[in-house]
Amino acid sequence: MKINLFVLYGGKSVEHEVSLRTAFTVLNAIDRETYDVYPVYITREGVWCCDGLQKQKPGSMDELASLGGNDRAGNAAASIGGVLLHYFSIPGKRVALPLLHGSYGEDGTVQGLLELLDMPYVGNGVLGAAATLDKDVAKRLLDQAGIGQTRYISFSLEEWLEKGPALIEKAERELGLPCYVKPATLGSSIGISRCQDVRELAEGIEEAFRYDRKLVIEREIRGREIQVAVMGNDRPIVSLPGEFIHRHTFFDFESKYMDKELVMSIPASLPEGVTARIRELALQAYRALCCSGLARVDFFLDADGELYCNEINALPGFTGTSMYPVMWERTDGTTYAELIGKLIDYAFMRHADKGTIRYTR
């Protein structure tokens, strides 16, 4: 029998559109001889929509966002209950594939629901998802693991309202200018500002607080940004490194998803020994943040050959311009469809392993 595969996408997140792009690419790549695919679209208001088994591959992203099956203007809780009752309870082997970037999907919330349902799911668990999405928490854990990072400070909206001028002075003194202001729990470069003076720094902080209640400010590292893909549970493996060749000083949302001139360089041309060092550091970071399933680890390499871990993305993009799947194809020949299959296999392995834990005395 085929495996029932529930693909979750959209979501109550600023990264809703990115999730649609990822879902469109993945749904067109899934092996339909192995899986019966049930797309589950989550609206920007958090309502879950499912039309049942998807017999044909989607022709457009608009099609993905037009699923019915529930009252689109209805109650989020009722819609979730309806999807769980009518579809997640279908007999047979089942697994979920969350393709939800950012809030309410990449942060451990959906993972917690799937744990309660005792359903295998692709990607990081509750702790790994929550820790990696929160840049402040992730940086503290990486610090404890001894993994080099750029200098940074972090503070909450409440702290900003209480002592804003002092925090501006601290950032300028400890980090220097230019620097980067980032919402603590978002990806895709949304809400991030490159600030070259104090005025821009204040504006960047206000912008970041539109999307979050905590932020981080980082010293700028001038150099190359190198990425590696990691996959696996207890014994993860690492791809060859890659980098985007581009002309942008700041690789923002438009640069990542709209620039038609982006060039992927895989494997990245690196000095002797640097590739091995990056791959080893990526494994250390993956374990330090309790990751499982998959992640992409990003580094800066400066002109002196120093490596700095920039961040870990627990749900890297799978769009047509995303690095993660291409790095695996260039590393060992894994195709897009094969990669999805491997990630699903890791989900089943982790679920089986957790099934050996005792919950009674």
Rank of each mutant, 00 (worst) to 15 (best):
E261T: 15
E261M: 14
L262K: 14
L262E: 06
L262Q: 10
V263T: 13
V263M: 15
V263A: 12
M264T: 09
M264L: 15
S265I: 05
I266N: 09
P267C: 01
P267Y: 12
P267R: 12
S269V: 12
L270Y: 13
L270C: 07
P271D: 05
P271R: 02
P271T: 04
E272A: 13
E272P: 11
E272W: 12
E272L: 10
E272D: 12
G273S: 05
V274G: 08
T275S: 13
T275N: 09
T275F: 07
T275P: 11
R277L: 08
R277W: 04
I278E: 06
I278A: 02
R279E: 10
R279L: 04
E280G: 00
E280L: 06
E280I: 01
E280R: 06
L281K: 04
L281Q: 03
L281I: 03
A282F: 11
A282S: 07
A282H: 11
A282M: 05
L283S: 00
Q284S: 01
Q284M: 10
Q284W: 15
Q284L: 09
A285M: 06
A285R: 08
Y286K: 02
Y286C: 00
Y286V: 00
Y286F: 11
Y286W: 12
R287M: 02
A288R: 10
A288M: 06
L289M: 04
C290A: 07
C290V: 01
C291E: 01
S292P: 11
S292G: 13
G293E: 01
G293I: 08
G293A: 06
G293H: 08
G293D: 00
G293T: 04
L294R: 06
L294T: 05
A295S: 11
A295Q: 02
A295D: 02
R296H: 09
